[in-house]
Design a protein around this nucleic acid. Structure first.
Lengths: 340, 340
DNA sequence: CTGAAAGCGCTTACAG
DNA sequence: CTGAAAGCGCTTACAG
């Protein structure tokens, strides 16, 4: 069943069938009806492969994500899908598991997809530019070794976000605040640490390197890092964890050792993944607007594919502190040292 | 840059270039080298759109999932990707959010994808058969209104799985076990309830309808259902929650009301999502082999696309009880009634 | 408003 | 082993 069969059946040319199907206005009403009737009766479905070749477009975009099981990534993905489906695009999703996946530029060049949104790109700006030069790509992430000026991006201000967490803890009277982060060589990891240090400084607190613990972003890593912390003599009264997963893993380890949250140690997470609200105690955390990050990145990619100009190359969305029950206010006398 | 440019540059025909590129053996070594050199120097990438049309195949499959943010779904997805990528397929992922998405058969018929794996299909067997008749589709789910004999499927034995949970609780001495489930009209929901009832019967316990609570599969629903339960006079000593999300939501509500897990109430979840291990207390749960479900479903779809015969139309994988710390053994005297 | 024909960039059966 | 040519099923500029 192809277009020529429909044409024959309707007594018109394939050109006319094609016009009717694409909604071309230059077709007589009567002709249009004949064609539609033929399509209906023959149960005809146009061949997308042929259409793609003729139009030289696939109506597909690529989304590259380290892993979908991560709640932040799946939310960003969701945001992307929200907007591109609306515009008739399908999304091909690739999980990299941090393997070096160099197939992305190829999938654009070979026309499998029209463009790509990356949720991670752990390479130098130079390497990135070389690989993606001139290709329609948008970064929806802070999983970057360094800022990539040449490519549009969406992210949050991680420094500011981390500062908010520390402000909050410091304002509750905490003077000894540990940091749990990732040693991944990414902007996100570095900036959250930077924000942590800034936050301490802004409250006149000193950075104590023995209170900084770095591993991966995972639950497991949070668990291990907290155990490491517990084996040191000096316990903090509060923890800022650079991801909710780290926070949850840490709480698990602390609880196992009889450390109570928030009575003994307060903790603030980062991301506001769904489960955070349902932990006991419910986790105070920094919310990333993940869905909007995805939506904005998709908007930008579609704008590029449409050969329009971007309003902004680098968009920063706002983070927000979500206060729940994992932190407590220190009593004045408990404070290890005087506030400045 | 197209194949004819490469051909011209290498001094051969496009047919030869095509043969070299597809790895056809019937090409002289010298010719092959000339072509490869030309490809290299011209930085040529074959146009997939044209190739797809010629081969009449897209090398793409569709995965339809209610939502990727769900940990079970994302694991199944991951399993699918494991095997199809290996075979050179890309996957197009569609989230339905339980909206009725009738575009799936169309995407197969119009050749966008070669086949589909569905992680949910909430319709009657009749409606399903009508929509998907003859199309290469595999079901990797229990999110079905009813068993669909005509379509290959992968799932677990939910009845058996739920029985395991109840056995475990009953063997710990629990006599009053509540059920938290989903009122979704799916096999998964019904079978887990059925397994719960079976389990009770097998231990000589009566089913008490006032201990059965049904909502959605979500965290939020677990929270609400547990609150409902708390407002009844009769509290169980144990809960079997038909998903980890329900369990986590329930624990949240119970903790808020000062009910301790497992001292006051024991709880068993279902799914073994990643976070379960890191809750306090760590959640005892039934593990679904989600990744394998995805892998097996993908195997089956590829087998069908390869026009091979399936070994089995309906595959059931094994579930497993993962014992952690959310349940306690009842002391003899605490038991409300004598064991039979 | 409509049709004949060229074109999209590959693949492959056929002939040599 | 290699090439000329037809074919995949659409789209669209051009002519009328």
């Amino acid at each position: 069943m192809k277009m020529r069969d429909v044409a024959k059946y309707a007594g018109v040319s394939v050109a006319t069938v094609s016009r009717v199907l694409k909604g071309d206005d230059n077709v007589r009403q009567l002709t249009k009806e004949k064609v539609l009737k033929a399509v209906e009766e023959l149960n005809y479905v146009p061949n997308t492969l042929a259409r793609n070749l003729s139009n030289m477009q696939s109506k597909k975009i690529l989304v590259v994500v380290p892993r979908v099981s991560n709640a932040v990534f799946s939310s960003i993905y969701h945001g992307i899908q929200n907007v591109v489906n609306e515009k008739g695009y399908q999304v091909i999703l690739i999980e990299t598991f941090n393997r070096r996946d160099s197939s992305v530029p190829e999938l654009i060049r070979d026309r499998t997809v029209e463009g790509a949104i990356l949720l991670s790109a752990m390479m130098s700006e130079e390497e990135f530019a070389e690989k993606f030069k001139g290709l329609p790509v948008v970064l929806a992430t802070d999983n970057l070794r360094e800022r990539i000026q040449s490519t549009p991006s969406v992210s949050i201000d991680n420094v500011l976000a981390a500062e908010k967490a520390v402000h909050y803890l410091a304002n509750l009277g905490h003077r000894c605040i540990a940091f749990l982060g990732s040693r991944s060589d990414s902007i996100g990891a570095r900036e959250r640490l930077e924000g942590y240090k800034n936050g301490l400084h802004q409250h006149g607190l000193k950075v104590d390197e023995s209170l900084i613990f770095e591993g991966e972003w995972s639950l497991e890593s949070g668990y291990h890092l907290a155990n490491q912390m517990l084996f040191q003599k000096k316990l903090p009264t509060a923890i800022f964890a650079a991801s909710d997963n780290l926070a949850i893993g840490a709480i698990s380890a602390l609880s196992e050792q009889g450390v109570r949250i928030p009575e003994d140690i307060s903790i603030v997470g980062f991301d506001n993944i769904a489960v955070s609200e349902y932990l006991t105690p419910a986790l105070t955390t920094i919310e990333q607007p993940s869905v909007q990050i995805g939506e904005k990145a998709a908007d930008m990619l579609l704008t590029i594919l449409d050969h329009q100009l971007l309003e902004q190359m680098h968009v920063e969305l706002n983070s927000k502190l979500i206060i729940r029950n994992s932190c407590r206010r220190m009593k004045y006398l408990e404070r290890g040292d005087e506030p400045k």
